Amino acid sequence: MKNLKSIALALVVALGTLSATAQTSKKVDVAQSKINWVGKKMTGQHSGTINLKEGNLIFNGKKLAGGNFTVDMTSINTTDLKAGEGKEKLDGHLKADDFFGVEANPTATLVFKSIGVKAKNVYTVNADLTIKGITKPITFDITVNKNDATAKLSVDRTKYDIKYGSGSFFEGLGDKAISDNFDLVVNLKF
């Protein structure tokens, strides 16, 4: 009888431990989440938005344990220009093969590979970013609160075969050179 009570107690403890460390997936609310981008050139910069198609954050208890996201590349939108100021031309060029080639590559993906705790609610993420069918590693910090998360990423576009206007690949561009990096500010709601 004593042995049976010990086994039952061990089982209760084991099940409690399993449920406390069980992973949960939280679906990102794509309608409420925002991705803002900034691309810089020698004579200024342009900014805009791009939409998430879907995404999930995975937690072990309250700790971030994973994540995966799909971005709708066809939604690239320049917000610092208005119609008639070159907005349509820039949006079209960003969607063309010179840049993101969205007809052949309508989505980009980000998959978390490993996560380290940096500070309270702040994690350093190593992930795989796929743009134009090319996957490269990227590292960034993400801050997670109750129902939202924020991250800033700097992406070297040339790693994804986006070389248009890059001073790293073309000489004599002068003030027409475009920075190899573009920045993303991501605000997720879940």
Score class of each variant (00 low, 15 high):
I115Q: 11
N126I: 07
K89S: 11
N36H: 12
L64M: 05
S47Y: 09
A14M: 13
G101D: 15
M1C: 11
V122I: 14
K87P: 03
Q32G: 06
D180S: 04
L129M: 12
T49E: 14
L188F: 08
G116C: 04
N68I: 07
M42A: 14
K146G: 12
D175C: 06
A151T: 13
K41H: 09
R157F: 06
V125L: 10
K82F: 05
A149N: 01
D161Y: 08
T78N: 14
G44A: 05
F100L: 06
N147P: 12
S168V: 04
T70L: 11
I115P: 09
F169H: 10
G16T: 01
G48Q: 02
A10F: 11
V144Y: 03
K63V: 13
D141Y: 13
L188S: 00
F140P: 00
K159G: 11
L57S: 02
S114M: 08
W37A: 01
V111R: 15
K152S: 10
N51F: 02
K146L: 08
G86E: 06
V71T: 03
G133R: 00
E85I: 01
K34A: 04
T135N: 00
A83D: 15
A14V: 14
V28S: 04
K136Y: 12
S114V: 04
Q32I: 01
N121G: 09
L129D: 03
N60W: 09
N105E: 05
V71M: 00
F59K: 02
I7V: 15
K189M: 07
K26A: 00
K95C: 01
D98K: 01
T139I: 13
N145V: 14
L57H: 05
S75Q: 05
V144D: 11
K159R: 11
G84Q: 02
K53N: 10
T74K: 08
V155I: 05
K27D: 15
I178N: 02
T21E: 10
V30L: 01
T78K: 10
A8N: 11
P106N: 01
K27L: 14
D128G: 02
K152Y: 10
S19Y: 15
V28K: 03
N36V: 08
K87W: 09
Y123F: 13
V13M: 07
G44D: 05
L129C: 05
K189F: 07
S47I: 11
M42T: 15
L15C: 13
T17K: 13
A177I: 02
K5H: 14
L52Q: 07
K176E: 10
L4Y: 13
